[in-house]
């Protein structure tokens, strides 16, 4: 099993870049990560870089253990970076930790609050920390998310815990919302509502969202950018439309999958009677394989699955 070619690309959409340059906001993006490294035993997050301009949603995708949660924890300074820089809303995330956190809304993959405390009391313990806290907004979200504020946290399902965490994160006018797998425990109906809420937030272009997920269909609906992490490295960080338009999935019989053909693909999945290969060179693939294969536009799911396998 070889490793697929890793290309580190960081880009913003042409329109976004132009606007950013015009407003002078480019160096003051919602999130700018550059050369960040972090190592644990058996895992290395290496030279990670990405840029999220204000007013956009970025989806962070990658297989389990790719480093998505570690990257989010680094942004929040929950774990210490070993190298590189992280600027949130133009400020270093370590030297301006408290200020930055008042402007970030964070939803962890597994919300953990004191289990014996009611949601009302958890909210009361949290709200005064945020100068921009909106009680009206919180009550509206609690109602929309069907939260019973008199219930103790430990009695809630995983999905309801996530909803509560979301209500807290969205009630203090956070300019950067960081969501770690927010939809993983949610039913499809609420997932759709959540995506609508997030889209509503982005009506105000000061707000930005970083959103890690396995459910790539959510990203196809909402994200402006996609960053793909694999084995602790950024494979690409590009505008979603560019990602989807660029990649193709080649499907054909196994008899054409020789060593030379394998080298053509960034990722290959073999089946009993055929194979699927991911390529960024769609036109070249058409010329090379002709009508022996079928070529479709790759979905984010295809890209994540095939690149995540890293096979040739």
């Amino acid at each position: 099993m070889g490793s697929a070619r890793v290309e580190k690309e960081v880009a913003v959409p042409a329109q976004g870049r132009r606007e950013a340059l015009e407003t002078g906001a480019e160096s003051d993006g919602a999130l700018v990560i550059d050369g960040v490294c972090k190592s644990y035993e058996g895992f290395v997050l290496k030279d990670v870089g990405l840029e999220l301009p204000r007013g956009y949603i970025m989806g962070l995708i990658g297989p389990n253990g790719a480093g998505k949660t570690t990257l989010i924890k680094l942004i929040l300074n929950l774990v210490r970076r070993e190298a590189g820089s992280i600027r949130v809303l133009g400020l270093d995330n370590v030297t301006h930790e408290a200020e930055i956190k008042s402007r970030i809304g964070y939803v962890p993959d597994e919300p953990r609050y004191h289990p014996d405390i009611t949601l009302e009391n958890l909210k009361s313990a949290t709200a005064p920390f945020y100068p921009s806290w909106s009680e009206e907004r919180f009550q509206a979200l609690a109602s929309e998310f069907e939260l019973s504020l008199g219930k103790k946290f430990k009695t809630l399902s995983h999905g309801t815990k996530t909803r509560f965490s979301l209500a807290l994160a969205l009630s203090h006018g956070a300019e950067l919302i960081v969501l770690d797998e927010p939809t993983s425990g949610l039913d499809p109906v609420f997932r759709r509502r959540l995506l609508d809420v997030l889209a509503g937030i982005l009506q105000d272009e000061r707000f930005s969202i970083l959103y890690s997920t396995h459910i790539t269909s959510d990203l196809e609906r909402t994200a402006d950018f996609v960053t793909f992490l694999r084995d602790g490295q950024v494979v690409f960080s590009r505008p979603k439309d560019e990602v989807i338009g660029r990649w193709g999935v080649v499907r054909g019989g196994r008899e054409i999958l020789d060593a030379e053909a394998r080298a053509f693909f960034e990722g290959v999945r073999e089946r009993e009677h055929g194979f699927e290969g991911l390529t960024s060179r769609v036109e070249a693939a058409r010329q090379r394989f002709g009508d022996r294969v079928v070529i479709d536009r790759a979905s984010l799911d295809d890209i994540m699955v095939l690149m995540g396998r890293g096979e040739r």
């Binding site: 929040l76 300074n77 929950l78 408290a98 200020e99 930055i100 956190k101 008042s102 970030i104 964070y106 962890p108 953990r112 609050y113 949290t126 920390f129 945020y130």
Partner: peptide, 8 residues
């Protein structure tokens, strides 16, 4: 972890 995500 919750404590450390508060603006303090």
């Amino acid at each position: 972890a919750w404590s450390c995500t508060l603006p303090a």
